[in-house]
Design a protein around this nucleic acid. Sequence first.
RNA 1: GCUGGAGUGGCGGAAUUGGUAGACGCGUGCGACUCAAAAUCGCAUAUCUACGGGUGUGCGGGUUCGAUUCCCGCCUCCAGCACCA
Length: 1013
Amino acid sequence: MNQNEYNPQEIEKKWQQYWEENNTYKVENKVEGKENFYALSEFAYPSGNLHVGHWYAFAVPDIYARYKRMSGYNVLYPMGFDSFGLPAENAAIKRGLDPRKWTYENMDYMRNQLRSMGASFDWSRTLATSDPEYYKWTQWMFIKFYKNDLVYKDITKVNWDPVDKTILANEQVINGRSERSGAEVVQKDMAQWMLKITDFADELHDDLENLDWDHSIKAAQREWIGRKEGSLIPFKIQESEVYDVNTGPGDDAFREGEEIVDRDNVVVIIEHPEKDEFLCARWKQVDWQGFVTGGIEDGMSIEETALSEVREETGYQNPEIIKVYDQSSHGLFWHVVKQQNRRANYRIVHVKLKDLEQVARSPEEQAIADFLWIPRLEVNDFLKREDMRYPWRVVSANIQKFDDVKVFTTRADTLFGATYLVLAPEHDMVQNLKSQVNNWDEVETYLKEVEKKSDLDRQQSKEKTGVELKGIEAINPATGKPITVWIADYVLAHFGTGAVMAVPAHDERDAEFAIKYDLPFKFVCLPSAGEPGVSRPLITSGENAFIQSAGVTEKKGSQEEINAEWNAMYDFLAEVHDQGGVLPEGKRFCCTFEGKVINGNEEVNTKNSEEARRIITEMVGGEMAKTYRLRDWGISRQRYWGCPIPIVYDPEGNAHSIPKEHLPWVLPDDVDFTPDGTAPLARSKELKERTEKIFGVGWTPEVDTMDTFVDSSWYFYRYLDNQNDEQFASSESLNSWMPVNMYFGGAEHTTMHLLYSRFWVKALHKLGYVPDNEPYKGRLNRGLILGPDGAKMSKSKGNVIDPDEVVAHVGADTVRMYLAFIGPFNEPGNYPWDPNGVVGVRRFLDRVWRLQEKISDITPEELQSDLHQTIKKVGEDIQRLKLNTAISSMMTFVNKAEKSESISRSDYDLLIQILAPFAPHMCEDLWMQNNKSSIHTESFPIADESKISSNLKALPVQINGKVRAQIVVQEDEDNELLQGRVIALPEIQKWIEGKSIRKFIHVPGKIINLVVG
RNA sequence: GCUGGAGUGGCGGAAUUGGUAGACGCGUGCGACUCAAAAUCGCAUAUCUACGGGUGUGCGGGUUCGAUUCCCGCCUCCAGCACCA
């Protein structure tokens, strides 16, 4: 009998020392007859103090590692430090310390704290990313990537953190703010080193499939990569047909040095009353072709001038003004008759004839000009003819050929409904078109406005703005019809091709924009969502309603109301159909559902959306394509405490990687690292001298350091072979350990570290340096430990739990176990710390300790059965990381054991063996009272099924699914006999009296149910 | 809006393939020990009840002898993405 009290403060230190002295947790790369198992927890940043989160991150997975070790695996569970990074520098600035000193002192301190967890780390394999022996290999890998075209330097828009004064990766920007400092991120053009993570976008997306990760983590990564499958559609760009001006060459070419006379004119574009045709003139006397024109006389309005010119010159009597364009077209030319330079400002007036009433023209007038109707599409060609002799003709030398604008769309099936084209303000084409845009001032103003907006502004104000590029038009490749071209900042430069085809009738954003700027809607896809059986309301109400996609529409309403709305829409669509789907004034339909194509052409009408996408894409010479949200990884940081980028520049400014013999390219010491937005390394005299000494006069070093996510992208390799000077890890060690079997970490790294390191491994694999294509076979995101008040622990809220204090009070074993008990470790929830709960776990350990008093020769049969059931359950639960239920089943067993007369020594030993992964110190102490070697080198007990008594079992008896009685059933009891016994039960009799038994259901070991009626 | 996940006592949570809903722990109540308190131990603890029983796992339906679990429709919360074409 051991009368000692359980005293964790004493025994924990004792056994921690013992394990260290005996190298209990030292791991070899290979052990005969054992399979390797690599369990990894995301390593720590040396912030200087261990908090509850660290315990949750390291001590709880240690339970799993210990279980695996006891289950016969050769388990590696290493620990190291992610020791480069901003906090060191910020602390250094604040307190006037050297970041190196601060970091390394913190690591020393934290190593001791980590020891207090009683975790089974093999400290001989530790690492720190700020050690030159480590970052030598970070640099080596960077250079390998550089030489293999996976790294490039580029001037791009970067996310600039004005507080930490450095660039941030996209992944480090959350809702427009810095993930670290919380500062609003601004966009800035800067040169930075980029890693081509996008080269691996497909692999990063597809290979998730085979990983044994939680569904939600995979989903989040896929979302982040943002692969979209759709089509690339080419749109031809041309000058608009109605107002081009001539600047020469030719008789009428502008003459330098001559006086310029200004003149205001109208150009009248006369539209046919029924057909899509325009009236062009062939002026016989002066031998030129064009539109009807005329000078604006004093006192005449533009409209009056235009109408009178039409009547006089063409004889058509009933023109009406459709539109007077804001912008005049203007050109400089030599007026051949008047012998002067003219600056003609032409106001373009669009006139439509109400009918074809035409007064007879006199023979004189007939002799001046012929008028002919020309289809809209040919107007421009007509005006371009060589024999044109007037300013607004297009001279061939002056025709600018534009590249097609490629548009990415997932809805190529709606191409027939594309009524305008929108470019991102940053799109290259915008600048290329400059000379052809008539309203460049307006465009430029808009571009400046957009540039001023931060990402946050863009996100906050969703009000759509844009400017038409006047004088430019695109051709819808499906219809062949011209459409207007706009720039708008709702189109993002970095997604797809930075250009969209706008289909207001089938895209909400386009609809919003089209309403604001009065652009046409054309309905080309009948949603199948309205077909019988799939009922979802689409239409709000009323014939002029703007119908948004179903998600936005009020969904309340009876089926009748919904049907009525659908019918209204179909009726309306029939009407619209006659007009080729073009919605009349005031009718605004927008439906984003897929369905069947209408108003297209014979090839695609009635085809479903998916099929139509293929057909239309092919028809217009487009191609099926994928696009991604993921962008390349910018790793340059303008800070001191990081891994130097191993690049030097020759006197011409060309970049060269540093040869291997000069690695590690060490971080200089002589640096004032106060951040001012420029890289601190630029201020190092030593670095400058070193560079010149090695490479020659005029050579300069790269002065940015790397994002710390680079350091952590490969650290799991270094644990395998941390003393190796020749390689980052030997291939023997890589082969024996990789990939990581189970990786424990925080959910916040799902789209950062986890994605970066997957990329890193894929890149190394591609270059042949590692055997694996993926670093982590298993992954578990842990939850969050909240303060006792249910809020996130923070100093300001005063709800921070100091684990050192709790350990001093109840012991490390209790803290480990409490954290495992607090909630299911395999579900990343938020679990509030309950100080009373800790005490409850400590009570359990006290009881296990006191249970020694019951040790004698025998264990009662029933208790032994319970024990083996518990052994089975604990093993199963640890394997699926449901540590909370593993613990609760041990508690249940101990509760029973306490009520029992006795427990045998060997059965008590089984109990402490299954408890050992959870409470390693206490179990070691109890074990070593009777043994010579550590309990942690023992095997995890295997349940003895023969000892689990199951031949007698109380089963619930239900009547019509409701429990009414219990009955003890023999394992092999005959069903007929059993039925007789059940019916005979008095509690059952009263329920079946006067009723007949329709069915007798016996699920062995589970339930008996009588169906009566 | 899209994607993924979750809704169970006063609280954290359990119920592994459809089979006694609420294990285990906390809290609470009562009791034992104590002069007393703490600690410890024991008993009780979903809810209503005319004490027969009824009701209950976000809501409304369905399948089934039987549903927290499966199906349909909805609501709420959490996380990721979001003017992403």
